[in-house]
């Protein structure tokens, strides 16, 4: 297969879902569960602190998140969850 067709084949693959992440920065206790167990490595911890002195997460790699909500399931402080958004492409 030539490089051109490979690129074409990749292009045809439509990404159907994208995730939107909601973080309640002040609830977060910086445990890192969400960052560690996101299957796609989409989250990172901020370098900034919240009022309690923890580093809350943010969606560092938007394209990697599909809204699976594993981060929401893991978060022991109910500080993060996601929404699956259908993207027409």
């Amino acid at each position: 297969m030539s490089a051109a067709t490979q690129a074409g084949a990749v292009k045809k693959k439509k990404k159907k879902y994208q995730g939107r992440i909601y973080v309640d920065r002040e609830r977060c206790k910086g445990c890192g569960f969400c960052v560690e167990f996101c299957p796609f490595g989409a989250l990172e911890l901020e370098t900034d602190y919240n009022a309690k002195g923890y580093h809350p997460p943010f969606l560092a790699h938007e394209d990697k998140c599909n809204g699976c909500d594993l981060c929401g399931l893991y978060c022991p402080d109910f500080a993060i969850f996601s929404e699956k958004i259908r993207v027409e492409d």
Binding site: K29, G30, C31, G32, F33, Y54, G72, L73, Y74, C75, P76, D77, F78
Partner: peptide
């Protein structure tokens, strides 16, 4: 506490 597993089970 931070990193306590109980909250995760509640989800």
């Amino acid at each position: 506490c931070p990193g306590c597993g109980i909250g995760t089970t509640v989800n």
